[in-house]
Computed example of a mutant assay.
Amino acid sequence: MDISLLASLAVIHLVALMSPGPDFAIVVKMATQQTRLTAVYCALGIAAAILVHTLLSLLGISVMIQQSPLAYMAVQLIGSSYLAWMGLGALTSALKTRKLTRQPATLVATPIDNVPKMSAFKGFKIGLYTNLLNPKALIFFITLFTVLITPQVGYATKTAAAILLFSLSFIWFGLLALVLSKPRIQQKLLAASSIIDLLVGIIFIAVAVTIAGNIMSQWLT
């Protein structure tokens, strides 16, 4: 087993996990507006999607998708559409919260009361789809594994890499969910729920627009 290779993978992956993006944004949204269990399951969904990306990359399926113009175009269209839909939903939620907070104090419910409660399974699905349908995640893992995981790497190291990336993903996002869903922290962030939704919407739509721009450039070249 190549320990130095696994250490390099761990460092690169941790930096990517901590970078602002759809995964980070959706966990923050879930942790501050939903139950702790739902937020943790959302983190688990993201980790599961990362495991799928890892396995697809190790098996060479991701490269095959990228090399097929039609398949890659379909993946980008589906992914960008989902991210745009999620982004618009977050922006709509932000506007609704803004309108409610402008009502007389006696008529205004707390922000958390205005957010429909999700089941843990739905939280898992949102986390799963957010990462799995993000074409940028696909490209990240193709690049990462093309550079670091050569044909000479043994099965033991590949298996360890899959377990490592899944574990790091769940630990990071799980801890984020646990910390932000603490009652005291959640209560402090409730007042900023509209801002959180706004930022989440902007992040998702920005990624969707970037992907759409890439699709357009591919068609024009």
Rank of each mutant, 00 (worst) to 15 (best):
L144W: 03
D197A: 00
A16I: 10
L6F: 00
L107K: 09
P151A: 13
M118D: 15
I139E: 01
F204A: 05
L56S: 08
A191I: 04
S19R: 00
G174F: 00
N214C: 10
Q187D: 00
Q67F: 04
V11L: 12
V153P: 15
A94G: 00
P69N: 13
L199Q: 03
P22M: 11
L165F: 06
Y129K: 02
W172H: 07
L55Q: 07
L190A: 14
K96H: 08
A137M: 09
P104Y: 04
L51W: 07
A177D: 14
K122P: 01
L37T: 10
G21H: 04
H13I: 08
L44I: 08
A94D: 02
Q66A: 09
G174R: 04
K136A: 04
T97N: 14
I185W: 13
A47T: 05
L14R: 01
L37F: 05
V207T: 14
L220W: 07
F173W: 13
P111I: 03
I65N: 05
S194F: 07
L59R: 11
I203Y: 02
A192L: 14
V11P: 05
D113P: 04
L70Q: 05
T150G: 09
R102W: 01
Q218G: 08
M216T: 11
A49H: 01
R36Y: 05
L132W: 11
L148V: 14
K117F: 01
G201P: 15
T106Q: 13
K188G: 06
R184T: 00
Q67G: 11
I78N: 00
G123N: 10
T92G: 07
G45Q: 03
Q186I: 02
S93P: 03
L9K: 09
L5F: 04
I203L: 00
A74W: 13
A31F: 11
F121R: 09
I163A: 14
G45C: 00
A109E: 14
L6G: 06
P183D: 03
T35S: 13
L198G: 01
V153E: 11
L138R: 02
L199K: 06
K182D: 06
F24D: 02
L138Y: 00
L5C: 08
P111F: 11
I185M: 10
N114E: 05
T32W: 09
A31R: 02
S194R: 10
L58P: 02
L95Y: 15
L144P: 06
A71N: 09
A39E: 15
G154A: 10
G201F: 15
V207P: 03
A25H: 13
R102I: 01
K158V: 05
P116N: 15
A74R: 09
I211N: 00
V28E: 07
L56I: 03
L178P: 09
I61N: 15
T157C: 05
L168Y: 01
M216E: 08
L100M: 06
A43Q: 04
A31W: 08
S4V: 14
